[in-house]
Simulated assay, not measured.
Amino acid sequence: MTGERRDRDSAGRARSARPRDGLGRPLAYGAEGVARQPEGVVRSAGETVREAQRLLDAGMPFHAHEVFEDAWKSGPEAERALWRGMAQLAVGLTHAARGNVTGGARLLLRGAAVLDASPDRTPHGLDLAGLTSWARELAARLHDGRAVDAAREAPRLTRGDRRPGGRERRRPE
């Protein structure tokens, strides 16, 4: 590494400037990538849930994980486990979609265990029972070794009219 320059952000922290795809994988320098989530954004819980759902629906669970990570790091101490568990679900889906089904299943199950420990089953409107069920079902299906489609498998974060797999039914417009 002698003589190599590392990419740094404006605060001087190491941060790769390589563009990334929708699942957060690094691409070659100069390639067209997906805009990164800004780090350290302080959002309300409702804003966190809405932004994460938008990203999950777009097939970008890695980016949703970063939104949950911001909430985990900037939110009240009493909610850190909740947001950490949500981040683990999102990164578990990320790994599964990237083809790392073993790591994906582990993270999905770890996140589900964290959320199961929450005494409030619907904090900020989140459907923890539905999310833990979704995570365990997806983890169980990963045994065949095939990557999953992140957008198709994305869970609904809040309660609503659900179909199997945790997704909300789309009503005709």
Rank of each mutant, 00 (worst) to 15 (best):
S118R: 15
P123N: 11
L107T: 06
D116W: 11
P123T: 14
G99S: 09
L82H: 10
A96P: 00
V101C: 10
W83S: 03
G125Y: 11
D120V: 13
R121I: 10
V114D: 05
T94Q: 13
L89T: 02
R98I: 00
M86N: 06
R106L: 06
L128P: 11
A129T: 15
E79R: 11
P123I: 15
A105R: 06
D127M: 12
V114C: 06
A129S: 13
D116K: 13
W83K: 05
R80P: 00
R80Y: 01
H124I: 09
D120K: 04
D116Q: 14
G104I: 01
V91E: 08
A96H: 08
A96D: 11
A87E: 12
M86G: 03
P123Y: 07
L115M: 04
L108G: 05
G85F: 11
Q88W: 03
L115E: 01
T94N: 04
D120Y: 04
G130E: 00
T102N: 09
V101R: 11
L109C: 09
D127S: 12
N100W: 04
H124A: 15
A90L: 12
R106M: 04
L126D: 03
L108K: 12
G92D: 04
L109H: 07
R80D: 00
L109T: 09
G92R: 10
W83N: 04
R84M: 06
R98E: 10
V101W: 09
T94C: 06
L126R: 03
L107P: 00
P119Q: 09
T102H: 12
G99W: 05
R106C: 02
V101N: 08
G125L: 13
P123A: 11
V101A: 03
P123L: 10
A90S: 10
A97Q: 01
P119E: 15
L108P: 11
E77I: 02
A113R: 12
H124G: 09
D116T: 07
A97L: 02
L107W: 13
R121Y: 11
E79G: 02
R121L: 13
A81H: 05
L108T: 01
L109K: 13
T122S: 15
E79N: 08
